[in-house]
Design a protein around this nucleic acid. Structure first.
Lengths: 220, 220
DNA sequence: GATGATTTGTACGTATGTATA
DNA sequence: ATATACATACGTACAAATCAT
């Protein structure tokens, strides 16, 4: 009666590829050759194909003619995704404000407090981890499993971009301050304010990213 | 240099299955047997597998143990999806209020006006078509292609439910009135009000559906 | 633009695991 | 509970399409 089964090779390859994409090991535009990936993981092309097709449906991979490449995000596309993410996060935090359990709220605050030290030592990687946990805690706070899935899915597609944005000069401290504002609104029970602040937070992240993109990329 | 290619068998099967699910020809819980579907479309199991995997990633199909079935939506799940849809639509209409071109707005109003006659003769199918066009016009009004894709994707998964809901007694007239309210807010340029009304509209639809589900389904 | 080299799309066979008698 | 039937997961072979030269 359980829905869990031992992961198939397809599943393993899919996870591995998804991780490689979000961690940046596989860069946008990289052609995914079935045979090469199959050799790399020691499996046949069949599970690799399965995995790639699923990643395509989830948006991490796109078809170029008949080939599959890691989804190439144009600046416009990235900004559109950030805007959508900002709105989804705003929705989540508004619902979470009214639905967080006491335990969930204390966990959220604990996560936020832990980031203080990381800002001082400028540990981007560890900050990104806790930042992710913070945002995800808000998704779970909606107690709407469908919304949680949607939010996680979009977030995964933006993972690489998110890390890039956090590397900008004083962004870590600003990010943490914005989180603080969100938490204050949650504690006051003002879901609308929390939503507005979260939207602003995400749009600030988008701006920081846009500026990073302008700086370090000068290719057509 | 074009991204369009002749559809593969996998693509054809995927479209056919997706249509069958959203039109209700394939009901929730139906087991998808590869060989049977392969015979039905005159192809081998391979493209059928590809298609099913993609549909799984997009949420229309789910794994039960090792079998694949048309996603069975529990009442809880359906309500969660409607809540998420309500929030997404609210976001879209708020953005659209500020971004609709003059042409887009006139088209939106035209669609709305055409529904008046359909309510009187209680033509649910035709109303559903125009209703879909109305909501999609609002998605496109955001001018955010990512958001448009997300909205369309969730909407497709709820297609069968949406139609069921419209069949409830006086729902058509109520639905149209709610659209009217949304349009009024848009015309006044009040995106926040439009968003609230759209959210209410979608949650009303969810309630109507919940009551329909309670009425006509008495199985465990 | 034609041709050869890859690479993908499809078919099919086999082994393993799941459901049912 | 055991065995049998059957569906799926994976591998392999070949055809068709694409890319590079």
């Amino acid at each position: 009666m359980n829905g869990e089964r031992r992961p198939t090779l397809s599943d393993q390859v899919r996870s591995a590829l998804a991780d490689a994409v979000s961690s940046g090991k596989l860069r946008a535009g990289t052609v995914l050759e079935e045979q090469q990936i199959a050799d790399q993981y020691g499996v046949s092309r069949t599970p690799v194909r399965d995995a790639i097709r699923q990643l395509q449906a989830s948006g991490l991979v796109e078809a170029i003619g008949r080939r599959m490449v890691v989804a190439r995000l144009t600046p416009t596309r990235i900004m559109e995704m950030f805007e959508a993410m900002a709105e989804i996060e705003a929705v989540c935090v508004r619902l979470a404000t009214y639905r967080l359990t006491v335990l969930e709220r204390s966990e959220l605050i604990r996560l936020h407090e832990q980031t203080e030290a990381l800002v001082e030592i400028d540990d981007v990687n560890r900050y990104d981890e806790l930042n992710t946990a913070f945002h995800e805690a808000l998704y779970y706070g909606t107690h709407n499993s469908f919304l949680i899935e949607q939010a996680l899915s979009v977030r995964a597609r933006l993972a690489a971009m998110r890390r890039m944005q956090l590397r900008k000069k004083g962004r870590l401290a600003l990010s943490r301050g914005e989180h603080q504002d969100v938490i204050r609104a949650i504690n006051e029970g003002d879901g609308e304010a929390a939503a507005r602040r979260m939207r602003a937070h995400m749009l600030n992240a988008a701006s920081a990213l846009a500026s990073s993109l302008r700086d370090q990329e000068g290719d057509a």
